[in-house]
Every structure is written in structure tokens, then in C-alpha cells.
């Protein structure tokens, strides 16, 4: 397929739904990949609300099924995009007792993700040409 060249944009994405329970996360992943293929920038993807479940490193679906967490990890490693998981959303969902549980959290989250705060989302949204949210139908 030949894509028409358009102005290069910088995108900030926010993923708000858990993998498998709705389409949001996978749509965000496919959007990020397609945007970068067209020469746009996706600097940061911020995982919030139930979207934090996309970062659970222990996710291990059967081999013949789609691995959404793995898709994100591959994208982060190949394209060097910043996948940020919200610490307060993670704490509410019981992954960590305190914000200083960092070592424990690092063991839980999948490769390519990092834990940080909501300021990372605001920072990305300010710098981006477009901010898009995916999922949230929960």
C-alpha cells in the first residue's frame, strides 16, 4: 500500500483498558505501529485506569493466542518508545503497597515498561501535537 505523505506529528497515547477484556489496548498498539510506519512520532504511551494490566509481566497466554503484553514489549524494544505505567493506578489495584516498593514493582512489570506518575502523562500531552486515549469502556 502506498501511503500519502502527511505532516509529521508527535503523538501521546493513553491506554485505559486491560488487555483481552476490550479492544482498546490492541487498537492503541496498532495505531502506534502504523503511525510510526508513516513517519510520525510516538514518544510515550501512558497506561492508566485498568490499562495498567497491560504491563503485568506474568501475563502468559497459551502460545497459539495473541500476547498483548508481549506486543507492547516488542514495540518498546524495537522502536524505543516510552511505556509508562501509572504508579497510583497500580497501587489502587494492589500491585504494590507503597510507592517505595520499586524493586517489587520492577519484578512485576513486563520488559519495556516503567513505573512513574501522572505528571509523565501531562508532560507528554503538553509536548504532543495530538493526545489520544484508547479504551475505558469499563
Amino acid at each position: 500500500m502506498v501511503f500519502q505523505r502527511v505532516k509529521q506529528l508527535k503523538f501521546a497515547l493513553q491506554v485505559n483498558s486491560a488487555p483481552y477484556s476490550s479492544q482498546g489496548s490492541e487498537t492503541a498498539y496498532r495505531f502506534a505501529r502504523a503511525a510510526m510506519q508513516l513517519g510520525h512520532e510516538v514518544d510515550r504511551v501512558f497506561f492508566y485506569f485498568d490499562g495498567v494490566y497491560n504491563a503485568l509481566g506474568y501475563s502468559a497466554p497459551p502460545e497459539d493466542e495473541k500476547n498483548v503484553v508481549g506486543l507492547w514489549t516488542t514495540l518498546a524494544v524495537q522502536k524505543n518508545i516510552d511505556l509508562v505505567v501509572c504508579v497510583s493506578a497500580v497501587q489502587r489495584r494492589g500491585w504494590a503497597h507503597t510507592e517505595s516498593d520499586n524493586e517489587f514493582l520492577q519484578g512485576l512489570i513486563a520488559k519495556g515498561f516503567r513505573i512513574s506518575g501522572l505528571g509523565q502523562w501531562v508532560d507528554a500531552a503538553i509536548k504532543a501535537d495530538r493526545t489520544l486515549t484508547f479504551g475505558g469502556d469499563f
Binding site: 492508566y48 485506569f49 493506578a89 501522572l118 502523562w121 501531562v122 503538553i126 469499563f138
Partner: peptide, 20 residues
């Protein structure tokens, strides 16, 4: 009914804290 309003407010207040 869920965490929704609370987490939306956290986003809102963070944006405000960044003087937006």
C-alpha cells in the same frame, strides 16, 4: 460505581498542578 471519577480527578488535578 467504580474508581473512575477518582482517577479522572487525579488526572485533572495533575494537569492543574502543571499550570495548565
Amino acid at each position: 460505581s467504580s474508581l473512575h471519577v477518582q482517577e479522572m480527578l487525579d488526572l485533572t488535578l495533575t494537569a492543574a498542578a502543571f499550570d495548565q
